[in-house]
Design a protein around this nucleic acid. Structure first.
Length: 259
DNA sequence: AGCGATGTTCGCCG
DNA sequence: TCGGCGAACATCGC
C-alpha cells in the first residue's frame, strides 16, 4: 500500500532489520521485477552489506559499498524480514539472505514495482525528473515547484515531477483538508491557498506516517475513510463527487472544497 | 465473474 | 513545450 508514508515506514522497517549484515545469497523469484540482468544484480550485491537508506518520494535507495539498491513498491509492494528456515512470504519476488540466519523479502503482488541498481542516487533522481520530496521539502522548494507548473491540483499532486511522494489516496485527503477542489488550477490559487496546500501536504503525510498506514482508524472528519461511491462528506453531509483524471479516481466534497 | 486497485510510462492530441 | 487523456503493464481480491 505504498505512497510516501508507507514507503517511509518500509524504510524504517528496513533500517531496523536489514542493515550491516553480510548478504550471503540472493534469490530472484521473478525476473520481471528487475530493471537489469539478474546475474549482474546478484554479483554486485552478494558479499556486500546494506549500509544506510534514503527515501525520495516513493523511491527507497539503499546504500551499499559500491552503489545503491533502488526499490519502488508500485501499487502492491512490501517488505518482510523472516527467519530463513521458515517458508518465504507469498508473492516474494526477491529474497536477500543474510549471514545471521534471516532474510529480507521484497514482495510485489502485481509486479508494478521494481528493483534496480545505480551508482549515483542524485543522478537517478534527476533522470526520473522527480520533484522535491513532499515530506522533506522546504517552503522555498515547494514555491519553486509551484512556479514551474500549471494544471489542475489533483493532477499536479499526482505528478511526481511536481513533488515526489503523493499518490491518489493522500492527494484526496490533502485537497480535502486544504479545502480546495481537485479541479482548481494551480495558476488561479491565491497566496493563502498555496500556503494551505503546503501545510496540508506536510500534515497529511506526517499523520499518515504516524498512523502507520492504518486507514481504518482515521478520525471521522478525514476524507480517507469515506472514499467510496455514494458516500457523503464527513463535515457537511453532501454527497461526495468523483473526479476521474490521469487515469485515477478521486473523491471530493463539492461544498467544502472551494471550486 | 468482472471490475477496480495506494503507480508509472508512453504515445497522441490540442 | 506542456498538460490532459487513455492505454498498457500484471494480477489479485472483492
Amino acid at each position: 500500500m505504498p505512497e510516501l508514508p508507507e514507503v517511509e515506514l518500509y524504510k524504517r522497517y528496513f533500517d531496523s532489520t536489514s542493515l550491516n549484515q553480510e548478504i550471503v545469497d540472493i534469490f530472484i523469484r521473478d525476473e520481471r521485477i528487475l530493471k537489469m540482468d539478474p546475474e549482474i544484480f546478484k554479483k554486485k550485491l552478494v558479499g556486500k552489506r546494506f549500509l544506510s537508506t534514503n527515501r525520495h518520494g516513493k523511491y527507497l535507495f539503499i546504500k551499499f559499498k559500491s552503489g545503491y539498491l533502488v526499490l519502488h513498491f508500485g501499487m502492491s509492494g512490501d517488505l518482510e524480514y523472516f527467519d530463513s528456515s521458515e517458508e518465504e512470504p507469498r508473492f516474494s519476488k526477491i529474497i536477500f539472505q543474510f549471514n545471521n540466519g534471516y532474510s529480507l523479502a521484497y514482495i510485489s503482488i502485481r509486479i508494478f514495482g521494481w528493483a534496480d541498481l545505480t551508482e549515483d542516487r542524485e543522478e537517478y533522481i534527476t533522470k526520473k525528473k522527480l520533484g522535491p520530496d513532499a515530506y522533506k521539502m522546504t517552503k522555498q522548494e515547494y514555491l519553486e515547484a509551484v512556479a514551474r507548473r500549471s494544471g489542475i491540483l489533483k493532477n499536479l499532486l499526482l505528478n511526481q515531477e511536481f513533488i515526489a511522494g503523493v499518490g491518489n489516496v493522500y492527494s484526496d485527503e490533502i485537497l480535502f483538508k486544504a479545502k480546495l477542489s481537485p479541479k482548481r488550477k494551480m495558476a488561479d490559487l491565491i497566496e493563502e491557498e498555496i500556503t494551505a496546500l503546503f501545510t496540508q501536504i506536510k500534515a497529511v503525510l506526517k499523520y499518515g506516517i504516524k498512523k502507520k498506514g492504518d486507514w481504518s482508524s482515521y478520525p471521522k472528519d478525514s476524507l480517507i475513510p469515506h472514499r467510496k461511491k455514494e458516500n457523503s462528506c464527513p463535515l457537511c453531509g453532501t454527497t461526495l463527487l468523483r473526479i476521474e483524471t490521469s487515469g485515477r479516481r478521486g473523491f471530493y466534497c463539492p461544498k467544502c472544497q472551494k471550486e
